[in-house]
Design a protein around this nucleic acid. Sequence first.
DNA 1: TAATGACTAAAAAACATATTTGGTCAATAA
DNA 2: TTATTGACCAAATATGTTTTTTAGTCATTA
Lengths: 194, 194
Amino acid sequence: MKEIEVKSIIVESATKFFSKYGFYKTTMDEIAKQIHKAKGVLYYYFKSKEELFNEVLKHELNVIKSELSQIVNSDKDSLIIFKEYFLTRLKLLHKALNYHETLKADFFEKYHFVKDVREDFAEFERIQLTIILKKGKKEGYLEVKNINSTVNIIMMVVNGIEIPLFLQNKYAEYETTINELSSMIVNSLRTQKK
Amino acid sequence: MKEIEVKSIIVESATKFFSKYGFYKTTMDEIAKQIHKAKGVLYYYFKSKEELFNEVLKHELNVIKSELSQIVNSDKDSLIIFKEYFLTRLKLLHKALNYHETLKADFFEKYHFVKDVREDFAEFERIQLTIILKKGKKEGYLEVKNINSTVNIIMMVVNGIEIPLFLQNKYAEYETTINELSSMIVNSLRTQKK
DNA sequence: TAATGACTAAAAAACATATTTGGTCAATAA
DNA sequence: TTATTGACCAAATATGTTTTTTAGTCATTA
């Protein structure tokens, strides 16, 4: 089999497990077994578990990126306010994510990824919200539960978007606070328009 | 010794340990040893460890309440915007706190407090911020680290109050996000004034 | 009535043992 | 050479067992 083919089969299998069980509860044996290969072959194509995970993230990011550009360029009417705000947030959240405690705890606690993977990860979270909006009530992507969903929910409320099922617990928890903050943001946006 | 005297000595000793080590890492033996009494005496005055802790909280709340009223009624110039907002938040945060995960995890996981203690606890957190502002750079009260400090920090930034040392890590983590939200709140307050 | 301290049951900590898992590598098939 | 295997290892994790700690009791005492 061609190198690229096997590589993408591995990534595909790995994606299933990582997105279902997370990094630590996924084993290399499982991934190999799923594609009917010996574990050693994974280490022929990838240096380590982290590098494979890295590859999975990169791949997911590319999918998400293309989805994002489609959304942003299609429905200009309903998303115009959101888009404006979102593009501002891209820069603002960047730094915050580098220090995001939950993500660090989950992924960087014991394993030290190279810098550019962190960058990609940051981008991944920034883009997350848009995808959630598009997917509606579908279950989220990789580790959605770990994302700073409060901020995301605020943005949904601001834009009058229905809260997906899997975020409704979080929403109920801080309902009044979120609504308060949301109305402030809306007011702020209105002021800026004048 | 009079009953009330001994009771308050116990509460005083207990407060030191609970505020330093938290509920679980404080032992009844320690508290008794500190006041040179046998452990049994604690159970003569209090039904259980929880009831003693309960009493400690009530006592702290009373201290804090009196401090709060002093602050609110003294410096009207510098705190007027904050006070306005803070009084609104008192109602808004109420519900959110009843579902505050970290607090629940720490205190209600294994022990079931009576309802009115939860109410008191909710009030305790709401009042917390004001106390932090007054105390400036001093270390916080009981379990300060568990408080939803992000919201508190936002409020500090809004009001141009210096971030205390023990909250600066948290601040650095979300610096840009906090500044963004803060400017929105400030704008919103300005709009409301017109 | 107020206080003691030995006592208990249950939880937590410490310790020891067994299993799992990321990663290697010599052998081998294509 | 290139791609794949699977036994093997060290380290981490899980499991089971023993020891210690601790919340709470109670008969006794001052």
